[in-house]
Design a protein around this nucleic acid. Sequence first.
DNA 1: ATCAAACCGGAGATTGAATCTCCGGTTCGT
DNA 2: ACGAACCGGAGATTCAATCTCCGGTTTGAT
Lengths: 239, 239
Amino acid sequence: MAGPSASGAAGGPDGVRAPRPRRDRELNRRKLLAAAREVFRDRGLKATLDDVARHAGVGVGTAYRHFPNKQALIDELVDDMFARVEEATRAGAEDPDAWRGLAVGLERVAELQALDRGLREVVFHSERAATAGLRHQEQIRRNVDLTVERAKEQGVLRADAEPWDLVVIQQMLAAVTERSGRPDLWRRYLRLLLDGLRAAPDQAEPLPGGHFGRGPDAPGPDWAGPPSPGPDAPGSSPA
Amino acid sequence: MAGPSASGAAGGPDGVRAPRPRRDRELNRRKLLAAAREVFRDRGLKATLDDVARHAGVGVGTAYRHFPNKQALIDELVDDMFARVEEATRAGAEDPDAWRGLAVGLERVAELQALDRGLREVVFHSERAATAGLRHQEQIRRNVDLTVERAKEQGVLRADAEPWDLVVIQQMLAAVTERSGRPDLWRRYLRLLLDGLRAAPDQAEPLPGGHFGRGPDAPGPDWAGPPSPGPDAPGSSPA
DNA sequence: ATCAAACCGGAGATTGAATCTCCGGTTCGT
DNA sequence: ACGAACCGGAGATTCAATCTCCGGTTTGAT
Protein backbone atom coordinates (compact mmCIF):
# COMPACT_ATOMS: atom_id res chain seq x y z
CA MET A 1 0.00 0.00 0.00
CA ALA A 2 2.55 2.52 1.03
CA GLY A 3 3.89 3.66 -2.29
CA PRO A 4 6.91 5.85 -2.40
CA SER A 5 6.30 8.82 -0.16
CA ALA A 6 2.72 7.97 0.68
CA SER A 7 1.73 11.34 2.05
CA GLY A 8 4.63 13.44 3.25
CA ALA A 9 7.51 14.81 1.31
CA ALA A 10 10.14 12.23 0.60
CA GLY A 11 13.80 13.16 0.62
CA GLY A 12 13.50 16.56 -0.98
CA PRO A 13 16.30 18.95 -0.17
CA ASP A 14 13.86 21.37 1.41
CA GLY A 15 10.60 20.82 3.20
CA VAL A 16 8.57 21.41 0.03
CA ARG A 17 5.39 19.37 -0.14
CA ALA A 18 4.68 17.44 -3.35
CA PRO A 19 0.95 18.02 -3.64
CA ARG A 20 0.42 15.53 -6.43
CA PRO A 21 0.04 17.64 -9.57
CA ARG A 22 -3.05 17.17 -11.63
CA ARG A 23 -2.95 14.92 -14.63
CA ASP A 24 -4.29 17.38 -17.18
CA ARG A 25 -1.53 19.84 -16.51
CA GLU A 26 1.23 17.73 -17.95
CA LEU A 27 -1.10 16.64 -20.74
CA ASN A 28 -1.77 20.18 -21.80
CA ARG A 29 1.90 20.96 -21.69
CA ARG A 30 2.61 18.16 -24.12
CA LYS A 31 -0.21 19.22 -26.38
CA LEU A 32 1.19 22.75 -26.48
CA LEU A 33 4.69 21.61 -27.27
CA ALA A 34 3.49 19.33 -30.05
CA ALA A 35 1.30 22.05 -31.51
CA ALA A 36 4.15 24.52 -31.31
CA ARG A 37 6.38 22.21 -33.28
CA GLU A 38 3.81 21.94 -36.02
CA VAL A 39 2.86 25.56 -36.15
CA PHE A 40 6.42 26.84 -36.11
CA ARG A 41 7.38 24.28 -38.69
CA ASP A 42 4.67 25.42 -41.07
CA ARG A 43 4.35 29.11 -40.39
CA GLY A 44 7.64 30.14 -38.86
CA LEU A 45 8.45 31.75 -35.57
CA LYS A 46 6.24 34.71 -36.21
CA ALA A 47 3.19 32.59 -35.45
CA THR A 48 1.27 33.82 -32.44
CA LEU A 49 1.08 32.05 -29.13
CA ASP A 50 -2.64 32.32 -29.63
CA ASP A 51 -2.22 30.34 -32.81
CA VAL A 52 -0.29 27.65 -31.02
CA ALA A 53 -2.93 27.44 -28.31
CA ARG A 54 -5.74 27.18 -30.80
CA HIS A 55 -3.87 24.53 -32.72
CA ALA A 56 -3.35 22.61 -29.50
CA GLY A 57 -7.02 22.84 -28.67
CA VAL A 58 -6.53 24.79 -25.45
CA GLY A 59 -7.16 28.37 -24.44
CA VAL A 60 -4.66 31.17 -24.63
CA GLY A 61 -4.64 31.44 -20.87
CA THR A 62 -3.43 27.90 -20.57
CA ALA A 63 -0.63 28.62 -22.96
CA TYR A 64 0.54 31.57 -20.95
CA ARG A 65 0.27 29.65 -17.71
CA HIS A 66 2.70 27.07 -19.02
CA PHE A 67 5.09 29.42 -20.79
CA PRO A 68 5.66 32.99 -19.66
CA ASN A 69 5.92 34.11 -23.28
CA LYS A 70 6.53 32.93 -26.79
CA GLN A 71 10.28 33.04 -26.51
CA ALA A 72 10.22 30.63 -23.58
CA LEU A 73 8.23 28.19 -25.65
CA ILE A 74 10.65 28.53 -28.53
CA ASP A 75 13.62 28.02 -26.26
CA GLU A 76 12.08 24.76 -25.24
CA LEU A 77 12.26 23.59 -28.85
CA VAL A 78 15.53 25.04 -30.01
CA ASP A 79 17.67 22.39 -28.42
CA ASP A 80 15.82 19.70 -30.32
CA MET A 81 16.35 21.50 -33.57
CA PHE A 82 20.08 21.80 -33.13
CA ALA A 83 20.24 18.19 -32.05
CA ARG A 84 18.65 17.13 -35.30
CA VAL A 85 21.09 19.22 -37.29
CA GLU A 86 23.98 17.78 -35.34
CA GLU A 87 22.81 14.30 -36.13
CA ALA A 88 22.54 15.19 -39.81
CA THR A 89 26.10 16.44 -39.92
CA ARG A 90 27.44 13.43 -38.12
CA ALA A 91 26.68 11.08 -41.00
CA GLY A 92 28.71 13.29 -43.29
CA ALA A 93 31.68 13.46 -40.97
CA GLU A 94 31.85 9.72 -40.48
CA ASP A 95 31.56 8.52 -44.05
CA PRO A 96 34.86 6.97 -45.19
CA ASP A 97 34.26 8.36 -48.67
CA ALA A 98 34.81 12.00 -47.87
CA TRP A 99 33.10 13.34 -50.96
CA ARG A 100 30.01 11.29 -50.38
CA GLY A 101 30.11 12.40 -46.77
CA LEU A 102 30.20 16.01 -47.80
CA ALA A 103 27.33 15.57 -50.21
CA VAL A 104 25.24 13.54 -47.82
CA GLY A 105 25.82 15.92 -44.95
CA LEU A 106 24.74 18.89 -47.00
CA GLU A 107 21.74 17.00 -48.27
CA ARG A 108 20.56 15.86 -44.86
CA VAL A 109 20.77 19.29 -43.32
CA ALA A 110 19.08 20.83 -46.31
CA GLU A 111 16.29 18.31 -46.05
CA LEU A 112 15.75 19.19 -42.44
CA GLN A 113 15.54 22.87 -42.98
CA ALA A 114 13.53 22.63 -46.16
CA LEU A 115 10.76 20.95 -44.24
CA ASP A 116 10.85 23.17 -41.17
CA ARG A 117 10.55 26.87 -41.44
CA GLY A 118 10.97 27.36 -37.74
CA LEU A 119 14.24 25.49 -37.84
CA ARG A 120 15.45 27.68 -40.66
CA GLU A 121 14.69 30.79 -38.69
CA VAL A 122 16.26 29.52 -35.50
CA VAL A 123 19.39 28.04 -36.99
CA PHE A 124 20.21 30.60 -39.62
CA HIS A 125 18.64 33.88 -38.78
CA SER A 126 18.67 34.58 -35.20
CA GLU A 127 21.23 36.02 -32.92
CA ARG A 128 19.37 34.12 -30.25
CA ALA A 129 20.72 30.90 -31.68
CA ALA A 130 23.61 31.81 -29.45
CA THR A 131 21.35 31.56 -26.43
CA ALA A 132 20.63 27.88 -26.69
CA GLY A 133 21.94 24.65 -28.06
CA LEU A 134 25.53 25.74 -27.62
CA ARG A 135 26.75 22.26 -26.94
CA HIS A 136 25.16 21.06 -30.16
CA GLN A 137 26.49 23.99 -32.09
CA GLU A 138 30.02 23.19 -31.07
CA GLN A 139 29.64 19.62 -32.15
CA ILE A 140 28.13 20.70 -35.44
CA ARG A 141 31.08 22.92 -36.08
CA ARG A 142 33.42 20.08 -35.30
CA ASN A 143 31.59 17.76 -37.69
CA VAL A 144 31.71 20.31 -40.47
CA ASP A 145 35.37 21.05 -39.93
CA LEU A 146 36.15 17.37 -40.03
CA THR A 147 34.12 16.79 -43.17
CA VAL A 148 35.88 19.56 -45.01
CA GLU A 149 39.29 18.60 -43.75
CA ARG A 150 38.96 15.01 -44.86
CA ALA A 151 37.52 15.95 -48.23
CA LYS A 152 40.52 18.14 -48.86
CA GLU A 153 42.91 15.40 -47.75
CA GLN A 154 41.33 13.04 -50.21
CA GLY A 155 41.71 15.67 -52.90
CA VAL A 156 38.05 15.72 -53.86
CA LEU A 157 37.20 19.18 -52.56
CA ARG A 158 38.71 22.28 -54.09
CA ALA A 159 41.50 23.51 -51.87
CA ASP A 160 40.16 27.02 -51.44
CA ALA A 161 36.90 25.90 -49.85
CA GLU A 162 36.39 26.59 -46.16
CA PRO A 163 34.13 25.03 -43.54
CA TRP A 164 31.94 28.07 -43.28
CA ASP A 165 31.23 27.81 -46.98
CA LEU A 166 28.97 24.92 -46.11
CA VAL A 167 27.04 27.12 -43.73
CA VAL A 168 26.60 29.77 -46.38
CA ILE A 169 25.49 27.12 -48.83
CA GLN A 170 22.79 26.04 -46.43
CA GLN A 171 21.65 29.61 -46.21
CA MET A 172 21.43 29.82 -49.94
CA LEU A 173 19.43 26.62 -50.15
CA ALA A 174 17.15 27.87 -47.43
CA ALA A 175 16.56 30.98 -49.47
CA VAL A 176 15.59 28.87 -52.45
CA THR A 177 13.03 27.00 -50.42
CA GLU A 178 11.69 30.11 -48.78
CA ARG A 179 11.29 32.18 -51.88
CA SER A 180 10.15 29.54 -54.30
CA GLY A 181 7.74 27.75 -52.02
CA ARG A 182 8.88 24.51 -53.65
CA PRO A 183 9.96 22.01 -51.03
CA ASP A 184 12.38 20.19 -53.35
CA LEU A 185 13.83 22.82 -55.61
CA TRP A 186 16.91 23.15 -53.43
CA ARG A 187 18.17 19.80 -54.68
CA ARG A 188 18.81 21.28 -58.07
CA TYR A 189 21.05 23.99 -56.69
CA LEU A 190 22.80 21.72 -54.28
CA ARG A 191 23.85 19.64 -57.26
CA LEU A 192 25.09 22.78 -58.96
CA LEU A 193 27.04 23.88 -55.92
CA LEU A 194 28.52 20.44 -55.42
CA ASP A 195 29.73 20.46 -59.01
CA GLY A 196 31.37 23.78 -58.29
CA LEU A 197 32.85 22.54 -55.05
CA ARG A 198 34.47 19.51 -56.51
CA ALA A 199 38.21 19.66 -57.12
CA ALA A 200 38.79 20.11 -60.85
CA PRO A 201 41.81 20.91 -62.98
CA ASP A 202 40.28 23.84 -64.83
CA GLN A 203 39.43 25.92 -61.78
CA ALA A 204 42.18 28.40 -62.49
CA GLU A 205 40.58 31.21 -60.53
CA PRO A 206 40.53 30.81 -56.77
CA LEU A 207 37.43 31.68 -54.81
CA PRO A 208 37.48 35.32 -53.83
CA GLY A 209 36.60 36.60 -50.41
CA GLY A 210 39.06 34.60 -48.37
CA HIS A 211 40.14 37.61 -46.39
CA PHE A 212 38.49 40.96 -45.93
CA GLY A 213 39.52 43.95 -43.93
CA ARG A 214 38.27 42.46 -40.71
CA GLY A 215 39.93 41.03 -37.66
CA PRO A 216 43.15 39.07 -37.82
CA ASP A 217 41.58 35.66 -37.47
CA ALA A 218 38.09 36.06 -38.85
CA PRO A 219 38.07 35.47 -42.57
CA GLY A 220 34.56 34.09 -42.68
CA PRO A 221 31.21 35.73 -42.33
CA ASP A 222 29.71 36.77 -39.08
CA TRP A 223 28.05 33.55 -38.07
CA ALA A 224 30.16 31.38 -35.89
CA GLY A 225 31.91 34.49 -34.75
CA PRO A 226 30.57 37.47 -32.87
CA PRO A 227 26.84 38.05 -33.30
CA SER A 228 25.90 39.81 -36.48
CA PRO A 229 25.30 43.56 -36.46
CA GLY A 230 21.61 43.05 -37.09
CA PRO A 231 19.46 43.54 -40.13
CA ASP A 232 19.97 47.28 -40.35
CA ALA A 233 23.18 48.83 -41.51
CA PRO A 234 23.90 51.90 -39.39
CA GLY A 235 26.40 54.53 -40.39
CA SER A 236 24.31 56.19 -43.03
CA SER A 237 24.89 59.74 -44.06
CA PRO A 238 24.89 62.28 -41.22
CA ALA A 239 22.56 64.84 -42.85
CA MET B 1 8.57 90.53 -69.52
CA ALA B 2 5.73 88.38 -70.59
CA GLY B 3 6.88 84.81 -70.17
CA PRO B 4 5.18 81.92 -71.91
CA SER B 5 1.46 81.98 -71.16
CA ALA B 6 1.60 85.11 -69.08
CA SER B 7 -1.65 84.69 -67.21
CA GLY B 8 -4.19 82.41 -68.86
CA ALA B 9 -4.10 78.67 -69.36
CA ALA B 10 -2.06 77.50 -72.31
CA GLY B 11 -3.37 74.70 -74.46
CA GLY B 12 -4.79 72.45 -71.79
CA PRO B 13 -7.41 69.99 -72.98
CA ASP B 14 -9.90 71.36 -70.46
CA GLY B 15 -10.35 74.79 -69.03
CA VAL B 16 -8.09 74.08 -66.08
CA ARG B 17 -6.00 77.04 -65.00
CA ALA B 18 -2.25 76.54 -64.58
CA PRO B 19 -1.62 78.77 -61.60
CA ARG B 20 2.11 78.58 -61.72
CA PRO B 21 3.09 76.02 -59.08
CA ARG B 22 5.44 77.18 -56.36
CA ARG B 23 9.10 76.43 -56.69
CA ASP B 24 9.53 74.75 -53.30
CA ARG B 25 6.93 72.16 -54.16
CA GLU B 26 8.93 70.52 -56.90
CA LEU B 27 12.07 70.96 -54.83
CA ASN B 28 10.60 69.09 -51.90
CA ARG B 29 9.37 66.38 -54.19
CA ARG B 30 12.88 65.83 -55.45
CA LYS B 31 14.29 65.85 -51.97
CA LEU B 32 11.79 63.22 -50.92
CA LEU B 33 12.52 60.99 -53.87
CA ALA B 34 16.26 61.23 -53.32
CA ALA B 35 15.89 60.54 -49.62
CA ALA B 36 13.62 57.60 -50.35
CA ARG B 37 16.20 56.09 -52.65
CA GLU B 38 18.82 56.32 -49.93
CA VAL B 39 16.67 55.14 -47.09
CA PHE B 40 15.19 52.22 -48.98
CA ARG B 41 18.61 51.30 -50.28
CA ASP B 42 20.05 51.14 -46.78
CA ARG B 43 17.17 50.01 -44.65
CA GLY B 44 14.82 48.26 -46.99
CA LEU B 45 11.19 48.87 -47.82
CA LYS B 46 10.06 48.55 -44.24
CA ALA B 47 11.44 52.01 -43.52
CA THR B 48 8.74 54.44 -42.47
CA LEU B 49 7.53 57.34 -44.54
CA ASP B 50 8.36 59.37 -41.47
CA ASP B 51 11.93 58.16 -41.78
CA VAL B 52 12.08 59.22 -45.38
CA ALA B 53 10.69 62.65 -44.54
CA ARG B 54 13.16 63.16 -41.73
CA HIS B 55 16.01 62.06 -43.95
CA ALA B 56 14.84 64.50 -46.60
CA GLY B 57 14.71 67.30 -44.06
CA VAL B 58 10.99 67.95 -44.45
CA GLY B 59 7.97 67.27 -42.29
CA VAL B 60 5.84 64.17 -42.45
CA GLY B 61 2.92 66.22 -43.62
CA THR B 62 4.85 67.27 -46.67
CA ALA B 63 5.64 63.69 -47.46
CA TYR B 64 2.00 62.72 -47.32
CA ARG B 65 0.99 65.69 -49.40
CA HIS B 66 3.24 64.52 -52.20
CA PHE B 67 2.54 60.82 -51.96
CA PRO B 68 -0.74 59.42 -50.69
CA ASN B 69 1.09 56.59 -48.95
CA LYS B 70 4.33 54.72 -48.84
CA GLN B 71 3.41 52.38 -51.64
CA ALA B 72 2.89 55.26 -54.02
CA LEU B 73 6.36 56.51 -53.22
CA ILE B 74 7.82 53.09 -53.79
CA ASP B 75 5.98 52.69 -57.07
CA GLU B 76 7.64 55.87 -58.19
CA LEU B 77 11.04 54.19 -57.72
CA VAL B 78 10.35 50.67 -58.89
CA ASP B 79 10.55 51.47 -62.55
CA ASP B 80 14.03 52.85 -62.09
CA MET B 81 15.13 49.74 -60.29
CA PHE B 82 13.94 47.41 -63.00
CA ALA B 83 15.49 49.67 -65.60
CA ARG B 84 18.85 49.29 -63.91
CA VAL B 85 18.49 45.54 -63.80
CA GLU B 86 17.50 45.47 -67.43
CA GLU B 87 20.57 47.45 -68.34
CA ALA B 88 22.73 45.05 -66.35
CA THR B 89 21.36 42.05 -68.19
CA ARG B 90 21.79 43.68 -71.57
CA ALA B 91 25.58 43.59 -71.37
CA GLY B 92 25.45 39.86 -70.76
CA ALA B 93 23.11 39.21 -73.66
CA GLU B 94 25.19 41.17 -76.14
CA ASP B 95 28.63 39.83 -75.40
CA PRO B 96 29.91 37.74 -78.33
CA ASP B 97 31.64 35.43 -75.86
CA ALA B 98 28.56 33.81 -74.41
CA TRP B 99 30.23 32.48 -71.31
CA ARG B 100 31.71 35.83 -70.43
CA GLY B 101 28.32 37.36 -71.11
CA LEU B 102 26.69 34.96 -68.71
CA ALA B 103 29.24 35.65 -66.02
CA VAL B 104 29.19 39.38 -66.50
CA GLY B 105 25.43 39.54 -66.54
CA LEU B 106 25.17 37.64 -63.31
CA GLU B 107 27.86 39.78 -61.75
CA ARG B 108 26.33 43.09 -62.75
CA VAL B 109 22.92 42.21 -61.43
CA ALA B 110 24.38 40.83 -58.25
CA GLU B 111 26.36 44.02 -57.74
CA LEU B 112 23.23 46.06 -58.11
CA GLN B 113 21.22 44.13 -55.62
CA ALA B 114 24.07 43.69 -53.16
CA LEU B 115 24.26 47.44 -52.78
CA ASP B 116 20.55 48.11 -52.62
CA ARG B 117 18.34 46.39 -50.15
CA GLY B 118 15.25 48.08 -51.46
CA LEU B 119 15.98 46.74 -54.91
CA ARG B 120 16.40 43.25 -53.54
CA GLU B 121 13.03 43.44 -51.88
CA VAL B 122 11.27 44.86 -54.88
CA VAL B 123 12.79 42.64 -57.52
CA PHE B 124 12.88 39.35 -55.71
CA HIS B 125 10.38 39.32 -52.93
CA SER B 126 7.28 41.06 -53.78
CA GLU B 127 4.26 40.02 -55.66
CA ARG B 128 3.83 43.69 -56.35
CA ALA B 129 6.76 43.52 -58.68
CA ALA B 130 4.02 42.48 -61.05
CA THR B 131 2.38 45.86 -60.60
CA ALA B 132 5.13 47.95 -62.11
CA GLY B 133 8.04 47.82 -64.46
CA LEU B 134 6.36 45.20 -66.59
CA ARG B 135 7.93 46.46 -69.76
CA HIS B 136 11.36 46.17 -68.20
CA GLN B 137 10.59 42.78 -66.77
CA GLU B 138 9.75 41.45 -70.18
CA GLN B 139 12.96 42.77 -71.64
CA ILE B 140 14.92 41.30 -68.74
CA ARG B 141 13.41 37.95 -69.40
CA ARG B 142 14.30 38.23 -73.04
CA ASN B 143 17.89 39.12 -72.21
CA VAL B 144 18.22 36.21 -69.84
CA ASP B 145 16.71 33.77 -72.29
CA LEU B 146 19.07 34.96 -74.98
CA THR B 147 22.10 34.73 -72.74
CA VAL B 148 21.31 31.18 -71.78
CA GLU B 149 20.41 30.15 -75.28
CA ARG B 150 23.64 31.42 -76.75
CA ALA B 151 25.75 29.94 -73.98
CA LYS B 152 24.24 26.57 -74.70
CA GLU B 153 24.79 26.97 -78.41
CA GLN B 154 28.44 27.67 -77.80
CA GLY B 155 28.62 24.60 -75.61
CA VAL B 156 29.93 26.40 -72.54
CA LEU B 157 26.87 26.06 -70.37
CA ARG B 158 25.67 22.71 -69.12
CA ALA B 159 22.75 21.58 -71.22
CA ASP B 160 20.37 21.04 -68.33
CA ALA B 161 20.51 24.64 -67.15
CA GLU B 162 17.45 26.80 -67.64
CA PRO B 163 16.95 30.54 -67.82
CA TRP B 164 15.13 30.67 -64.52
CA ASP B 165 18.15 29.14 -62.87
CA LEU B 166 19.80 32.50 -63.21
CA VAL B 167 16.96 34.11 -61.32
CA VAL B 168 17.24 31.59 -58.54
CA ILE B 169 20.97 32.16 -58.42
CA GLN B 170 20.39 35.83 -57.90
CA GLN B 171 18.08 35.01 -55.05
CA MET B 172 20.73 32.87 -53.46
CA LEU B 173 23.33 35.59 -53.80
CA ALA B 174 20.92 38.08 -52.35
CA ALA B 175 20.48 35.80 -49.38
CA VAL B 176 24.22 35.69 -48.86
CA THR B 177 24.42 39.45 -48.77
CA GLU B 178 21.40 39.81 -46.58
CA ARG B 179 22.37 37.29 -43.98
CA SER B 180 26.09 37.85 -43.82
CA GLY B 181 26.02 41.62 -43.89
CA ARG B 182 29.14 41.47 -46.05
CA PRO B 183 28.67 43.48 -49.22
CA ASP B 184 31.14 41.41 -51.25
CA LEU B 185 30.81 37.88 -50.01
CA TRP B 186 28.45 36.98 -52.83
CA ARG B 187 31.35 37.03 -55.28
CA ARG B 188 32.76 33.92 -53.70
CA TYR B 189 29.57 31.97 -54.26
CA LEU B 190 28.97 33.32 -57.69
CA ARG B 191 32.33 31.86 -58.64
CA LEU B 192 31.31 28.56 -57.14
CA LEU B 193 28.02 28.53 -58.98
CA LEU B 194 29.63 29.49 -62.25
CA ASP B 195 32.04 26.60 -61.89
CA GLY B 196 29.05 24.36 -61.38
CA LEU B 197 27.22 25.88 -64.32
CA ARG B 198 30.02 25.40 -66.80
CA ALA B 199 29.71 22.52 -69.22
CA ALA B 200 32.04 19.74 -68.11
CA PRO B 201 32.53 16.13 -69.15
CA ASP B 202 32.24 14.66 -65.64
CA GLN B 203 28.78 15.99 -64.87
CA ALA B 204 27.19 12.61 -65.20
CA GLU B 205 24.21 13.45 -63.04
CA PRO B 206 21.71 15.86 -64.53
CA LEU B 207 20.24 18.63 -62.43
CA PRO B 208 17.11 17.46 -60.68
CA GLY B 209 13.94 19.44 -60.45
CA GLY B 210 13.32 19.95 -64.13
CA HIS B 211 9.72 18.89 -63.81
CA PHE B 212 7.51 18.57 -60.76
CA GLY B 213 3.94 17.57 -60.42
CA ARG B 214 2.73 20.98 -61.44
CA GLY B 215 1.08 22.41 -64.48
CA PRO B 216 1.87 21.10 -67.95
CA ASP B 217 4.14 23.94 -68.97
CA ALA B 218 5.56 25.30 -65.74
CA PRO B 219 8.73 23.48 -64.84
CA GLY B 220 10.32 26.43 -63.10
CA PRO B 221 9.60 28.08 -59.80
CA ASP B 222 6.76 30.45 -59.29
CA TRP B 223 8.43 33.67 -60.26
CA ALA B 224 7.97 34.60 -63.86
CA GLY B 225 4.77 32.62 -63.81
CA PRO B 226 1.68 33.18 -61.74
CA PRO B 227 2.24 35.13 -58.53
CA SER B 228 3.60 33.10 -55.66
CA PRO B 229 1.24 31.63 -53.08
CA GLY B 230 2.59 33.91 -50.40
CA PRO B 231 4.90 33.33 -47.48
CA ASP B 232 2.65 30.95 -45.60
CA ALA B 233 2.11 27.41 -46.70
CA PRO B 234 -1.46 26.33 -45.91
CA GLY B 235 -2.57 22.76 -45.97
CA SER B 236 -1.21 21.82 -42.58
CA SER B 237 -2.36 18.80 -40.69
CA PRO B 238 -6.10 18.53 -40.02
CA ALA B 239 -5.93 18.06 -36.25
C1' DA C 1 -20.75 11.41 -2.95
C1' DT C 2 -18.88 15.75 -1.54
C1' DC C 3 -15.66 19.55 -1.24
C1' DA C 4 -12.01 22.80 -2.05
C1' DA C 5 -8.09 23.70 -4.58
C1' DA C 6 -6.22 23.93 -8.94
C1' DC C 7 -6.91 24.42 -13.51
C1' DC C 8 -9.14 25.79 -17.91
C1' DG C 9 -11.08 29.03 -21.55
C1' DG C 10 -11.39 33.08 -23.93
C1' DA C 11 -13.00 38.04 -23.83
C1' DG C 12 -10.75 42.02 -23.72
C1' DA C 13 -7.10 45.29 -21.56
C1' DT C 14 -2.49 46.70 -22.77
C1' DT C 15 1.27 47.72 -25.48
C1' DG C 16 3.70 49.07 -29.56
C1' DA C 17 4.50 50.34 -34.12
C1' DA C 18 3.15 52.43 -38.27
C1' DT C 19 0.04 55.29 -40.95
C1' DC C 20 -2.16 59.33 -41.78
C1' DT C 21 -4.60 64.14 -40.50
C1' DC C 22 -5.01 68.75 -39.02
C1' DC C 23 -3.98 73.46 -38.13
C1' DG C 24 -0.92 77.43 -36.76
C1' DG C 25 2.88 79.59 -38.92
C1' DT C 26 5.80 80.57 -43.01
C1' DT C 27 6.99 81.37 -47.86
C1' DC C 28 6.13 82.26 -52.58
C1' DG C 29 4.31 84.66 -56.67
C1' DT C 30 1.94 88.72 -58.05
C1' DA D 1 2.39 94.34 -49.41
C1' DC D 2 -1.00 90.68 -49.68
C1' DG D 3 -3.37 86.37 -49.86
C1' DA D 4 -3.13 81.72 -51.47
C1' DA D 5 -0.52 77.81 -51.21
C1' DC D 6 2.55 75.27 -48.78
C1' DC D 7 5.26 73.57 -44.77
C1' DG D 8 6.14 71.22 -40.13
C1' DG D 9 5.25 68.08 -36.72
C1' DA D 10 2.20 66.87 -32.72
C1' DG D 11 -0.96 63.61 -32.07
C1' DA D 12 -5.33 60.90 -33.62
C1' DT D 13 -6.15 56.49 -35.70
C1' DT D 14 -5.57 51.82 -36.95
C1' DC D 15 -3.98 47.27 -36.60
C1' DA D 16 -1.82 43.38 -34.73
C1' DA D 17 0.30 40.90 -31.09
C1' DT D 18 1.00 40.05 -26.21
C1' DC D 19 -0.64 39.11 -21.94
C1' DT D 20 -4.25 39.26 -17.74
C1' DC D 21 -8.31 38.25 -15.30
C1' DC D 22 -12.23 35.92 -13.59
C1' DG D 23 -16.39 32.83 -13.99
C1' DG D 24 -17.01 28.03 -14.72
C1' DT D 25 -15.22 23.22 -14.77
C1' DT D 26 -12.34 19.28 -13.55
C1' DT D 27 -9.37 16.78 -10.42
C1' DG D 28 -7.79 14.32 -6.34
C1' DA D 29 -8.68 13.42 -1.60
C1' DT D 30 -11.80 12.41 2.24
